[in-house]
Write a protein that binds this DNA or RNA. Structure first.
Lengths: 331, 331
DNA sequence: ATGAAAGCGCTAACAA
DNA sequence: TTGTTAGCGCTTTCAT
């Protein structure tokens, strides 16, 4: 059927071991033999079988990546970061979307372990004890990307969400001298919890008493933003500013306001989060927090390669810097 | 080290074959033995090694997906379609971005074949003879998604780009009675070629002589759109309408025009292509052609499963329907 | 520098 | 219904 290492060995009058050596770049091969082998590989069109190699060597050079939704621009940029570094280190990626569904997550991790991935990059909303247990029972390293593990047992790469939210809220308060509304996704997503905390801390710091009726929860989508803005207006809330925990949602908020003839930023300032591509694709352009998604993915993958190579790692919880970009949706 | 099928067999007092049978759901196992085996699997925490299985069975239940750029929303939706169907059929996906670079593409295909994927879904700009040769020498089926093979040798799933572009252009002409500008990506991408043809055919049909100076080529990105709009205005071209071959670029065109104080659609109508999420995230909302990306991915993957199961396939070149959505960027 | 041979963990005849 | 056994294609000691 297919050409095997054995065929090459026979044709080249050497042993399988020698063929294996030249295929794997082992230097202990006489140049002339190497050439001979290389020639017959070429001639026969031999293609090494990575599955057999994986079985024999116990390394597959593939890593698993679990992501909430590959079609979300936020996560797909992260995925690209992972991928670029992975391919730099000659790894392939088995990519799966989990929709943040814990059963799916558990199942995916299991499948990937069955496939003998050399490591896993995990992105999700919430890390539970079950996750931690599964990660520990896996005999391969796991790194969390843009996903917090409060216990710090699992290596992870993030930005400081609390601080970023604090800064955004403070920025808004400095100009408006009042509580900005908060439009956010569900609290079950850990990052939202941190953002909420930062928001609250900013109010405290400014000596403003928290009014919970200025907090709106909705889906973290464009339509969720529109709906949240609608709900806010319906309830008669007219804050001078809104802090929205994702850009896509923030764009929805902007349009929801504009559709009600409210000017951004003149009447209401809007502050986003993540600096996804849409932040620039809206008028007024969106002031937001830059969460370097690509970098998070890249750094997480780089970290994973270190674990896979059993290199020493100084710090297993990395916090990447974020920054604020002031655009036209705030004054 | 790890628990193997052999350990389970020993502990359960059966043969490896029996364990293999229960793991694979083979019905030829007495219920009591099945239970006994299942219990000891549970007790030992046995996890089947898919690599060994793949070597023995010559099936890996993983397929390769080659995509130009996973961080583009266009392709990431496609990827999601592929993924959903793949997981429905218990396949995993090795996903890699090629940046439409032919060397990378060739290399990726090769790596995936080494990894013994059971099939490949390929997305790219241009199918060359080298691709076709490589696909033919692969011993696994390949399906193209949103990618044309003019020779029709390789199965593919697409929409009719030429017709869609014809319809969009005609729609514009009906209102403006003149040649709309065409803002497009590079001609080396086959789909752009088809769109160009549709554009030209619409002009012919309307009896309008083609003026090439109304055609602008740029990167198919938001900024590419802004730049193309700028170039158009700079050259003193003031068409009543513009047909743009991707939405993201079209949003750039809209903003480029608006930034020059040109009203959309009052002064210039803008027509996009693809109906990606951004089409709704711009004001005015974008009139566009709905290319069902998710469906293309899903259908392509479904088609691939048929080939992998050696099922009969009636038609290997499938054209999915598209449609036009009129929104506010046109009159 | 090269070869022989024993696995890696599993599936799939074939036998019983 | 169950067990035996021969691979799958490669890596990796251990010799030579």
């Amino acid at each position: 059927m297919s050409i095997t290492i054995y065929d090459v060995a026979r044709e080249a009058n050497v042993s399988m071991a020698t063929v294996s050596r030249v295929v794997n770049g082992n230097p202990n091969v006489k140049p002339t033999t190497r050439k001979k082998v290389l020639d017959t590989i070429e001639r026969l069109g031999y293609r090494p079988n990575a599955v057999a190699r994986g079985l024999a060597s116990k390394k597959t050079t593939t890593v698993g990546a679990i992501i909430p939704d590959i079609s979300s621009s936020f996560f797909s940029e992260l995925a690209r970061g992972i991928e670029d570094i992975a391919s730099m280190y000659k790894y392939n990626i088995i990519l799966s979307s989990s929709d943040q569904n814990q059963d799916k997550e558990v199942h995916l991790i299991n499948t990937m372990l069955e496939k003998q991935v050399d490591g896993i990059v995990f992105m999700g909303g919430q890390i539970t004890d079950e996750h931690i247990q599964q990660f520990n029972s896996a005999h391969v390293p796991v790194v969390l990307a843009a996903t917090k593990d409060d216990t710090k047992h699992i290596p992870s790469v993030n930005i400081d969400y609390e601080k970023a939210a604090y800064e955004a809220t403070t920025d808004l308060i400095e100009r408006t001298k009042e509580q900005p509304a908060l439009i956010t996704g569900g609290k079950h997503v850990q990052a939202n919890g941190y953002k909420y905390q930062g928001y609250v801390r900013a109010l405290e710091k400014a000596g403003i008493e928290l009014d919970e009726s200025y907090i709106f929860e909705n889906e973290t989508t464009y339509n969720g933003g529109i709906d949240a803005a609608g709900e806010m207006l319906e309830k008669g809330k007219r804050p001078k500013a809104v802090f929205v925990t994702t850009d896509e949602m923030a764009v929805g908020v902007i349009h929801g306001l504009q559709d009600a003839n409210i000017q951004v930023p003149e009447d209401v300032e809007v502050f986003g989060f993540n600096n996804t591509r849409v932040a620039l694709m809206v008028r007024p352009t969106l002031t937001t927090i830059v969460q370097p998604m690509y970098d998070i993915g890249a750094v997480a993958m780089r970290l994973l390669t270190k674990y896979m190579n059993k290199e020493e790692v100084e710090e297993n919880t990395v916090i990447l810097p974020h920054r604020m970009i002031e655009r036209d949706s705030t004054k």
